[in-house]
Amino acid sequence: MAYPPADGAAGNRPALVRVEGVSFSFGFRRVLEDVSLSIDEGDFLALLGPNGSGKTTLVKVILNLLTPERGRVFLWGRQAAEFLEWERIGYVPQKATHFDPAFPASAREVVAMALRSTRAVARLSRRKQEEAIRRALELVGMDEHRDRPIGRLSGGQQQRVFIARAIVTDPGLLFLDEPTAGVDAETQERFYDLLGRLNTAQGITIVLVTHDIGIVNKHVSRVACLNQKLIYHGRHEDFCRSGVDEMLAGGQHLVSHRH
């Protein structure tokens, strides 16, 4: 069964991620129902939905951390279960900042553990590895704090270190799950500017999961709205005209059928 992309704007660039008719349940509770969407190279996709709408579950299905009941996921055209080049994907989990604050790791070590855990990197010389670590920390503006323990950094600084950890393998695709929870507004603003730079200057495709519609800002190019089913998937400008955003912002319940 072939699923067309949710809208016709994909052009002929190859989809990095293609989700086809995915359903998933925790026990008897249906979390995802027949979700299909594609993520193209260069997208900055905001995956929106209220708490408990299945956003995190969808990301985990895409990353092969959970196996869907029905449907399939393709990464770079290859089924997720058979995909091997995981260094092409960066991931900042929802609970990334929930680590034990006494964990003895410096910011540099946090970035290094991701780089040196990947198979592809074993071939790089030590000097090249150190360079990659420094470059990732510089990109997020954290190189001057490289030797400080991760637990003693501010929430915003920790987030930036986790971004550095996620991009140190030079991935083409970056997933961030609720990255600004518990971070003040000004820091959030700078954080989204950083993501915008990574998207435009570094050419990294970004998927940002959030329940906060307020973050859908100038950097986001596409929007997907999820509440068990996919309610909206398309360009940011169209999203603003569709009225779904006002519904979300108005705190109304999301309609559970597709528009």
Binding site: L65, W86, E87, Y91, S117
Partner: peptide
Amino acid sequence: TFDREAARVAGV
């Protein structure tokens, strides 16, 4: 040890 989920995604 530090982040089991992220490690799994990285192929550990």
